[in-house]
Design a protein around this nucleic acid. Sequence first.
RNA 1: GGAGAGGUGUCCGAGUGGUCGAAGGAGCACGCCUGGAAAGUGUGUAUACCUCAAAAGGGUAUCCAGGGUUCGAAUCCCUGUCUCUCCGCCA
Length: 423
Amino acid sequence: MLQIAFIRENTQEVIERLAVKNFDARERIQEILAIDTLRREYQKNLDETLAESNSLAKEIGNLFKAGKQQEADVLKTKTADLKVRAKELSDALAESEQKQNELLLTIPNLPSREVPKGKTAEDNITVHQEGEIPQLYAEAVPHWDLCAKYDIVDFELGNKITGAGFPVYKGMGARLQRALINFFLDNAVAAGYKEIQPPLMVNEASGLGTGQLPDKDGQMYYMPLDGYYMIPTAEVPITNLYRDVIVNEKDFPIKNVAYSQCFRREAGSYGKDVRGLNRLHQFDKVEIVQLAHPDSSYQLLEEMKNHVAGLLRKLELPFRILKLCGGDMSFTSALTFDFEVYSTAQQRWLEVSSVSNFESFQSNRMKLRFKDKDGKMQLAHTLNGSALALPRIVASLLENNQTESGIRIPKALAEYTKFDMIR
RNA sequence: GGAGAGGUGUCCGAGUGGUCGAAGGAGCACGCCUGGAAAGUGUGUAUACCUCAAAAGGGUAUCCAGGGUUCGAAUCCCUGUCUCUCCGCCA
């Protein structure tokens, strides 16, 4: 959430930068500013009214003590009017505050100044590419066929038990999953991230904190009986660990890593994009999250990118890094880099990681702050990235490493799987 | 799920319906003391919003949350929520 004071003082800049995200904020901002003026007016009047009745109450108390009943009673009639007025004003204030807040929640984060203009994924900029795209033998097939051939991921069984998008991992498939999770976690811990195991369901306040709500309501699974949401990513519980927290400036950067299953309704997805492991309702992901001092958040974003790149290198996967254009960025992000690995049998790039700096957008929603050197309260910056999401990594590992005699497991990973071929 | 007890500042902890943003302690910060440290000692130590060009200052709110009673609520009443204890159920 953007800060109202910032919008008030930098109205034109806010509108211009939001335009990079293809968000026409002109009308909305005017509306917010109008309510802001009104809100402050109510606040002022209410404060004055309450100040008056506070001082009258004090006087009445003193008169009672002095035994001056009658004089006290006279003042009492005065306070009755003030009370009515205070009630009206506080209702009006609460209403305008709520309205303003609702509107503010609908404004996306400002893109950082280096975000390229653009409307769709076509306009993203490839900033880096490395690794060789392997030459496959003639009968090479996409991963869903490999999954069936080696009986490692069973989509049919998942359909039976739950529904589409909930695969069952079997045998070496299940072991490969477990190996990848440990591989990713170990690498993150070695890089200084503290391992956390969070709840897989969160309450509404947490959804609001990281920005899934109200923007992506409908993309999360919801448990109406208890009012909980299944997490779409560990980012939600992990970042919300610090909701309403004043962290110690000396502790920056705070680095956490969590493995979790992720649940996404993926309403509106269809076609070849959802084939096999390409898009699932339940999947596994290791997520890294950092809380940072505003001065160093972009430096840390680079560090996170390097970490992710290092993982892909160890897995010997060809990958590229995209800087997302304004139109392809998420609601909450200020700058995002996507990592894509090449899936040779599908002949397409698959997104396996998204690394973002949210600046103070999430921390303002969460009231995640720190006291700076001058003793002033400041919002921290939050960052996160996938390191990594499993399904498409598995897809490309299977496809890129398939041979006539089985699927080769990269060396770094074989230490974890305890097998180097899937046969 | 049933019964009971309780939620006060960074922490511990006091609190009678008015003078309580809140005693006292610990912690922390800065100073004095010391060769240095400990001890001792002095001062300070919440957040949000409004007001003010800014700072200083001032106002309002906040003692789990939301309502209510009252001229006045940390204190009384109601609801919710969380924690603890006991019982039940259970991986």
